[in-house]
Design a protein around this nucleic acid. Structure first.
Lengths: 272, 272
DNA sequence: CGTCGTCTTGAACTGCGTCAAATTACGTGG
DNA sequence: CCACGTAATTTGACGCAGTTCAAGACGACG
C-alpha cells in the first residue's frame, strides 16, 4: 500500500513486500507503524504539530464520499478501509484497500474534491493531517517534501500492481496475487504473513479482482482443495507460498504476445 | 491523462473530458498545450529555466526502462507513448498511454528508479525537466508546489479510470470506454473528438483492455457493424457517441452487487 | 428458535480465449 | 514501378473458464 519509502520494492511479478518498518509515532504509540518513517530522520516534532487530531470511524462508516471537499489527509492507525467508486448502476467498484500506515486522500489534491468513497471495513482510527499543514511542512522541510512526494509516487506504484493483477488472464492468478499482496502487507505491519484475518467480504474481494462473489467462493474452495491455502470463513492460512507464485506465472503466459522487447526497436510496421 | 488541473473532471461513468487548455509554452510554441497551465499564472520564466532541454524519441525507442535511474521528468511535446511492465513470461502489460501535455516519470519518485518502461508509439519529442529543478521550484514557488501536486494526483485519478475500465464486466463496455477516453483526450489537445488516428497497435489496445488481439479485432468488427463507430485500419470515426455510452452503462449492471450504500451503515453482519 | 444476510454449491449457458489459417498492409530490393 | 517477404490484422472453429440464475447451508443475533 502506500507506506513509504517502500524500501526498493522489487519489480518481480508479485506485489511489493517491503520489510516491516518500526518507527513508533509519538502520538499513536500503537505497535503498528502508523506513520512509516515519513518523518523520523527529520523532525518528529514537526509531524506532531501537523496532526490535527485522531478520529474514530465505525465499521461501515465512511471517512469521506465522492464529491466531498478535500482538505485533510488521513493516516490509518488501526483498522482497514476500502476505497470504491459507484458505477452508473450503483454498483461498488473497489479500487483499493487501506491498512494501518497507509495515507488516504491523495485523490483529492487534483481537484479539491474527493473522487471516490472510503469506508471502514472494521472499527478503525485515523490521524487527521490538514492539507494546509502538509503544504507548509513541505515548504519548510525539504526532506519532508521528498518523503511526501515519494509516498504519493508509491501509491501510483500500488495502482500499477492492481492494474497488473486485473490483467492477469486467469482468476487463479489474480486471487493468488491478491493473497500474496495481503500477506506482504501484514508482514509490513509486523504481523504474521502466513495467518491473518480478511477484513473484507467476499463481495469486496470479487469487486477488487474484477469478478463475482460466486467465483471467489469457488476459488477459495479450489485453493483449499489444492492445499495451497486454508481459508475458512475469514481466516486465512498460507500453506504453500511457492504454489501461489507459480499460479501467477503459469497463467501469465502469452496474452497479447507483443514479443519481449530486448532491443529498443521492436519489429512492427511503421505507420504509413 | 495527467494534464492538470483537469478542471473538475466529472465523476460520471466516462473517462474525464476536460476542456482544451490553451497555454502556449514559450519554449515549445507548438499548437499543442505542451505544459498545460502548470506554470502560467505564476512565473512562466521560472519554468523555462527548469527545462533542461528537448529530446527526440524515435518510434519504438524507449524514453526509459524498468530499473533505469530516475532523475528527470518528461513532458510530451509531440507524439504518443505507451507505458508497460513485463510480466514473468516477458509479455507486455500496457499500463497507460501518454499524449502531448502529459507528464511522464512520477513512478520513479518513490524509489529513485523507474518501475516500468515507456516507449514511443510514433516519432515524438519531449521536454526534459530535472527532478532537482522541480524540487527547487516547489520550494521557491508555493503555487507551483500546488500545481505539481495536483498533476501528480491527477495521474492517480487516471489510474482509477483505468482500473474501472478493467473491471467492466463486458469487453464491449471496456472498448467503448477506451474510445471515449481517446476522444476526450484528443478534444483536450484541441483536435477533433470524432475523428482521429490510433497511435497504438491492436496488441497494445488488447493489453490495455485486458484481452487479446483477436478479441479487439472482433470488437472493432462488431462496433463497425452496429454503426457506433467506423474504424478502418488506424483511423477512427465516432458515429454514435450515445450508443457508446449506453454500452458502458448497460454492461455495468449487477456485478458484485454490494447494494448502493446511500446510508453509511450498509447491512452486513458483524464479524464474530 | 426464527429471521436475516453472507457464503457456498449446483446446473446450464455463453463470451472469450485458444489455435490455426487466410488476408492485408507495407517496406524492401530488384 | 512491380514482385516479394515480413509482420499486423482479420476471420473461423472449438472448448472451457467464468457468469448467471437459483437454491441451499451456515452463522449471528434478536
Amino acid at each position: 500500500m502506500n507506506a513509504i519509502p517502500r524500501d526498493r520494492q522489487e519489480a518481480a511479478g508479485v506485489p511489493g513486500c517491503g520489510a516491516a518498518a518500526d518507527n513508533r509515532c509519538a502520538l499513536c504509540g500503537g505497535r503498528e507503524a502508523c506513520l512509516p518513517s515519513l518523518f523520523h530522520s527529520d523532525d518528529n516534532a514537526a509531524f506532531e504539530r501537523m496532526v490535527a487530531g485522531k478520529r474514530r470511524i465505525e465499521r461501515h462508516a465512511s471517512l469521506f464520499r465522492a464529491n466531498d471537499k478535500f482538505d485533510t489527509f488521513y493516516i490509518v492507525r488501526v483498522g482497514q478501509f476500502k476505497e470504491f467508486v459507484l458505477d452508473p448502476a450503483s454498483v461498488q467498484r473497489v479500487v483499493r484497500f487501506y491498512m494501518p500506515g497507509d495515507i488516504v486522500g491523495f485523490d483529492g489534491v487534483a481537484t479539491g474534491v474527493h473522487s471516490s468513497r472510503v469506508m471502514a471495513l472494521e472499527d478503525s482510527e485515523v490521524c487527521e493531517v490538514p492539507y494546509a499543514q502538509v503544504r507548509k511542512a513541505m515548504h519548510d522541510h525539504p526532506r519532508f517534501l521528498d518523503r511526501f512526494l515519494a509516498a504519493m509516487s508509491a501509491t501510483l506504484l500500488d495502482q500499477h500492481q492492481h492494474t497488473r493483477l486485473l490483467t492477469l488472464p486467469s482468476l487463479d492468478g489474480r486471487f493468488a496475487c491478491f493473497l500474496l499482496y495481503l500477506s506482504a502487507n501484514y508482514a509490513r505491519m509486523g504481523y504474521s504473513d502466513t495467518a491473518f484475518r480478511l477484513a473484507m467480504s467476499r463481495s469486496d474481494i470479487g469487486s477488487y479482482l474484477g469478478t463475482t462473489v460466486e467465483t471467489v467462493s469457488r476459488l477459495i474452495a479450489r485453493f483449499n482443495a489444492q492445499h495451497a491455502v486454508r481459508i475458512e470463513r475469514r481466516m486465512v492460512q498460507i500453506l504453500d507460498r511457492a504454489k501461489l507464485i507459480a499460479m501467477i506465472d503459469n497463467t501469465a503466459a502469452d496474452r497479447c504476445p507483443v514479443p519481449a522487447p530486448t532491443e529498443d526497436r521492436q519489429p512492427e510496421m511503421p505507420v504509413h
